[in-house]
């Protein structure tokens, strides 16, 4: 057994919250730059220039990339040979609260969905854990703004439905969101499992590099086709038109039931933010 002190977990979570909010993912930044070069509309180029400059400025001046510093979701893979000293949940939450207080991030969480009183420390967060082999802790912190979160959707397809119906569903979600989701977006799709599994997969899908593609051939083909259709919508960066509506599409799939085909679409803005560390 390896003992990990909860203090180290808190410190790591704090570090990752700060990194995610101040430093745009390298793959996203590179994709924005590539899109800037390919873009033919001068208005779209102007918007992409500002988005890229904003990311560089945020990193240099230690300012949040976006004022919506999000609700923190922690994905923690715990090695089964690890013993945690102290209370795990408390450690994660201490890390989040400290990061948000020290770094002047916005506290965006309300305690009750109806009464809506701000908790003033950005807590609670959402924590997903899984047990894996080994003696390490793999912590990923994701902060997502709600401009794009509000656009996410799920649908239970029939088992006999074709891939093209799923494509249409995803493209429709992007079309309906217009410029509200802060395009160019990164589209995560979860397919299969149960409704909760599909939704979780759609979130995990955007952790993959935006330039990558699925290892499954038929899924990679689906990703490519969705991307082409979405970019032919001509919504463009922040809705000004142009060819860059999405930077990428990532689809994750899981076995499912003979009677169903759950699909979830997670639209993630051009400031797709997360950070990961193994301790």
């Amino acid at each position: 057994m390896r003992t990990i002190n909860s203090k180290l977990i808190a410190e790591t979570v704090k570090e990752l919250c700060i990194k995610a909010n101040l430093e745009l993912r390298k793959d996203i930044l590179s994709a924005l730059r590539r899109a800037r070069e390919k873009e033919t509309s001068s208005k779209a180029r102007g918007v992409l220039d500002i988005i890229i400059y904003n990311a560089l400025l945020a990193r240099k001046k230690r300012l949040p990339i976006c004022q919506d510093t999000g609700m923190v979701v922690a994905y923690v893979a715990i090695g089964q040979e690890v013993r945690i000293k102290g209370v795990f949940r408390k450690a994660v939450e201490r890390g989040v609260a400290e990061a948000y207080r020290c770094s002047y991030f916005r506290n965006s969480i309300v305690m009750d969905p109806l009464r809506r009183k701000n908790t003033k420390n950005n807590l609670p967060s959402i924590i997903y854990t899984c047990i894996v082999p080994g003696k390490r802790l793999n912590i990923r912190i994701s902060v997502k703004g709600f401009g794009c979160e509000n656009i996410s959707r799920t649908r239970m397809f029939r088992p006999t439905d074709s891939a093209s119906l799923i494509e249409d569903f995803v493209v429709e979600a992007v079309k309906d969101s217009g410029s509200r989701a802060c395009p160019p977006v990164y589209i995560g799709v979860g397919m299969g499992g149960t409704i909760d599994k599909a939704t979780l997969l759609s979130k995990e899908a955007v952790f993959r590099s935006v330039a990558g593609c699925s290892r499954k051939r038929h899924i990679a083909k689906l990703e490519k086709s969705i991307l082409a259709k979405v970019n032919s919508l001509k919504i463009g960066p922040m809705g000004v038109g142009g060819r860059t509506t999405a930077l990428g599409v990532s689809v994750l799939s899981y076995p499912t039931h003979i009677a169903g085909l759950p699909v979830a679409v997670n639209i993630s803005c051009h400031a797709t933010r997360d950070a990961r560390k193994v301790i």
């Binding site: 945020a58 509200r180 802060c182």
Partner: peptide
């Protein structure tokens, strides 16, 4: 940022007002 509802678009025009968009996610 983003589109407005049909009703609000026509109300903005009727009242002689204006709606601007700026760049979402460029907070810094």
């Amino acid at each position: 940022k983003g589109e407005r509802s049909k009703e609000i678009v026509s109300a903005i025009k009727r009242f002689g007002a204006v709606y601007f968009i700026t760049i979402g996610g460029a907070g810094a």
